[in-house]
Computed example of a mutant assay.
Amino acid sequence: MQVISAADVERHLGWEGLIQRLKSTFVDGVESPPRHHHAMHRPDGEATMLLMPAWEEAGYIGVKIVNAFPQNADHGIPAISGLYLLSEGKHGQPLACIDGSELTRRRTAAASALAGDVLAKEDADTLLVVGTGKLAPMVIEAYASVRPIKRVLVWGRSQAKANAVAAEYADRFITEGVTDLASAVGEADIVSCVTLSTEPLIKGEWLTPGTHLDLIGAFRPTMRETDGECLRRADVFVDTYAGAKGEAGDIHQAIEEGCFAFDDIKGDLAEVLKGDKPGRTDDEAITLFKSVGASLEDLAAAIETWENMANA
């Protein structure tokens, strides 16, 4: 069994190939049971263990093990860590143990970029990233691979961290670490939230016609990045119905507040990619994509990494 490091994943998992692999996997489908979600009560706060299995009908088999420790931010280390075990499908023999953190970062950003490719305006060129963690750079790179991004705004609770993320991409885009989130939302064509917030950060009244709102961070019912007005105003799409119904805090809490109903969801990503449901209907529409992560994405990313390394 081969051990594939984070550096290996970074080297062999390019955006174009990964996004295309994700598209094919969403369209063709794989077996992907609901992920196991275990709350762990730790001395310094609550943490989460996720087990995410998936397999092709006659091909690869995989499972990801993830530990999510939001309190790690207080120690200056990533909140998410994990491993991915990829096996061959004929006899179930392990092929590779892959760094799960880098795999997750890249597949998460790529899934949002894939959704953005059918939901954001074709000429969207201003991206606002809300959050300054490890996912923020990935979101910038992934969106730049599907849209003509020229300007990148970054907002975070720490202005120093927002400035640092912006500075990292100053040679490729017009960048700015912003302090006024409401104004930044109004200026952006795409707003991508990558936080672990439990309180609304984005208000629906700030959204302007044509905006695409991408919600990545809240993966539990108690977490949210938007208020209910965002969902009331937007055409809402999800990565999977099962994930949205089970864990999407933005949706659950908007429903509880009477701003939204589950039946208001316009479609999941597979339906839009297949053409079964329309995506963006016009340039004035406000679109919203809520993802909580799906095990089929991890399997796709692991296969893409493995096959790229084998063919290198």
Rank of each mutant, 00 (worst) to 15 (best):
I4N: 05
E16V: 03
I19H: 10
Q20L: 15
F26P: 05
D28Q: 13
P34N: 00
P34Y: 00
R35L: 10
H37L: 09
D44F: 10
D44N: 01
G45W: 02
L51E: 09
Y60V: 00
V63Q: 00
I65Y: 12
P70T: 06
E88Y: 00
G89L: 04
L95N: 14
T104V: 04
T104N: 12
T104E: 08
A109Q: 15
A113P: 12
L114A: 10
G116T: 10
G116V: 06
L127I: 05
V129S: 10
G131N: 03
G133C: 02
V139T: 01
V152I: 14
A166V: 14
A166C: 13
Y169W: 14
Y169P: 09
E176C: 15
G177I: 15
G177M: 14
I190P: 07
C193Y: 01
G217H: 11
T222N: 13
E225D: 10
D239H: 03
A242T: 08
H252Y: 02
A254T: 05
E257C: 01
G258C: 02
D263P: 01
D276L: 15
D276V: 15
D276E: 15
K277W: 04
P278M: 03
P278N: 12
E284V: 13
E284H: 13
S291T: 09
D298E: 05
A302H: 07
